[in-house]
Design a protein around this nucleic acid. Sequence first.
DNA 1: CGTAGTTTTGAGTTTTGTCAATAACCGTGG
DNA 2: CCACGGTTATTGACAAAACTCAAAACTACG
Lengths: 249, 249
Amino acid sequence: MTDSENDSIQPSAEIPELCQECTARHRGICGALRPDELTHLNKISKQKTFAEGLTLMADQQEAPFFANVLEGVVKLSKTLPDGRQQIVGLQFAPDFVGRPFQSESHLFVETASKVKLCTIPRKGFEQMLGDIPSLQERLFQQTLVELDESRQWLVALGRKTASERVAGFLHMIALHMPNNKESPSQGDKNTTSFDLPLTRSDMADFMGLTIETVSRQLSKLKKRNIVSISHNRRIVIHDMELLEKTSRE
Amino acid sequence: MTDSENDSIQPSAEIPELCQECTARHRGICGALRPDELTHLNKISKQKTFAEGLTLMADQQEAPFFANVLEGVVKLSKTLPDGRQQIVGLQFAPDFVGRPFQSESHLFVETASKVKLCTIPRKGFEQMLGDIPSLQERLFQQTLVELDESRQWLVALGRKTASERVAGFLHMIALHMPNNKESPSQGDKNTTSFDLPLTRSDMADFMGLTIETVSRQLSKLKKRNIVSISHNRRIVIHDMELLEKTSRE
DNA sequence: CGTAGTTTTGAGTTTTGTCAATAACCGTGG
DNA sequence: CCACGGTTATTGACAAAACTCAAAACTACG
């Protein structure tokens, strides 16, 4: 809407208004761009909001766009012929979604929650990727981080118990979610609260468990007074340290 | 030894002798280099052979070099405080070993078998990476492939049974190993033989199982006449198709 | 309130892990 | 070439973890 305001005035110096407050501006891939490059990206990209449970890109399909996650959680999953499913990645703001150098994804990309994306058309982005080495390097670095995360989760699935996986999952989510702290002791890093962005079914598919096992493990954490859960999604973590410890052994 | 023969004659046109027959020359990262660049890489790199069971880079340590795998298998693993171990990746020729943009590895890198590497000193390689965009792009692409493989194995660990994992593992190894076919029917793609590059213990650590479970599943595959095993390591796959099918359901 | 969908809990089964004993393999040296 | 000892792999019996199926409780929403 207001995308084109700066167009003819100072094409190479100002930062587009929309990008000023953007979560992807600094920590995301846009941080690799000069003002004029950012302006160009801003011109071809478009913010869009998606409801929970939508498929953004389907397995074996040409992915029409790349995107930065601005809000919410995007899940990457794989499905076996008999219907078993595994979530192989979760993307939070300001992560980048999409795979360069390959038009078709072999993943399902779906919204796990309500999601706001900054979408970028495939062609335009690939052009920029070829022209701007710093952008490619940034994307390369983010890919390396994703590889690290994937391998970290591989350890959880291969060697950790259900109890450790659930604790580790909650801990990881706690670090990624906007932290709605309500306790008076603001500086207390040992307690946090947030809304779970995933259903029990998604949690199970991420952790390689059944929903019943996930539920039982959550109940155990409640009994140990490490977390409280209300309305299914609302989580209060009373003891982050103990949660983290539980995820390690 | 013969590394420096071409040095002063035609520094920018000829392909170094050692690289001529190298497995990394075409499919590996060296394929992204021009002859003069390859000559430079050849000058700073060095072929080395390592015995089975050696640690090339340890967790939290500064990795002294990058390398191309020329022969054998390198395993990447992570260890939990209590000793549980998970192999998070296996590298075959002509894979690249090492993580750019980060001096310390969070992995153990060990030789799973006897291994031949073309090692490249950290500094020199990072310099080349900065100077040669095509090299960075090649490495980026290989990283994306590794990410795909890692996610594929995530599905196995999260959702597949022991039987499926073992079949899938054998199938994967069969595709990577130099295929010592001995049967008269050369063109028969349904049968293969090779030496396992991993011990039962490594196999278990890769598949997130115990050695006993691995052994029991191998025995089942023998009973079903899908494979034969002799001398612990020598594998003959009689029916690749059935093996692959077993890995999928 | 009542209903549909989700989550939790319970009871019983299956798969995989643990521990222990046996067997196969490899290298060495007689 | 065979015997020996150490290592690695297989097999068996049992235990534990997680799964399946079914029922009850909770939640959201009209």
